[in-house]
């Protein structure tokens, strides 16, 4: 039998709360009856089921003799994943304003340079080359409408 970890307690509780909230939303949408199910029917029962299953997992973590705590973050450079998410959020925020070309070039430069140490020359060349190539392939050949952003002025 797999060792149930303490981590499961936290996630099962979170999912139980989420399930309860969804059930409440389903109830607000109107459940209807078996003869005439309304829009909230599946939402409500799915919420109840998620809550029930989460509580079952929670109970299992307390009953399991093999319970222990293994951190899924230990010995790993999780900060890198966090950095990626931050860069991406900033990228989406400035995408329309700076346009595809500038924002993508900067994103790639950050990814090449700050997460894994690339040489400046390589990072610049790869970022510029990839951005221009993608712009032509997706924007020109596949007719995707990328925003030009500040470059629109030129």
């Amino acid at each position: 039998m797999r060792a149930l970890k303490n981590n499961d307690r936290v996630t099962s509780l979170l999912l139980a709360v989420l399930g309860s909230y969804v059930a409440f939303e389903g109830y607000s949408l109107k459940i209807g009856s078996l003869q005439d199910p309304k829009p909230g029917f599946l939402v409500f029962w799915a919420g109840i089921l998620l809550t029930g299953l989460s509580l079952l997992l929670l109970i299992k973590t307390f009953r399991s003799l093999e319970a222990g705590s293994i951190s899924p973050w230990k010995g790993l450079q999780w900060q890198k994943g966090l950095k990626i998410v931050i860069y991406l959020i900033v990228y989406v925020a400035v995408f329309k304003w700076l346009g595809f070309l500038i924002s993508t070039f900067l994103l790639l430069l950050f990814l090449f340079k700050s997460l894994e140490s690339q040489r400046w020359g390589t990072a610049l060349l790869l970022s510029a080359g990839t951005t221009i190539l993608c712009f032509f392939i997706f924007g020109y050949f596949l007719e995707l409408r990328f925003p030009l952003g500040v470059l629109k002025m030129f």
Binding site: D8, L15, L18, G19, V22, L42, V43, A46, G47, L49, L50, L53, S54, L56, L57, K60
Partner: peptide, 12 residues
């Protein structure tokens, strides 16, 4: 059990 929970989450 966890996979079943994910099925329900997917339905939601």
């Amino acid at each position: 059990l966890k996979s079943l929970m994910m099925v329900v989450l997917g339905l939601i």
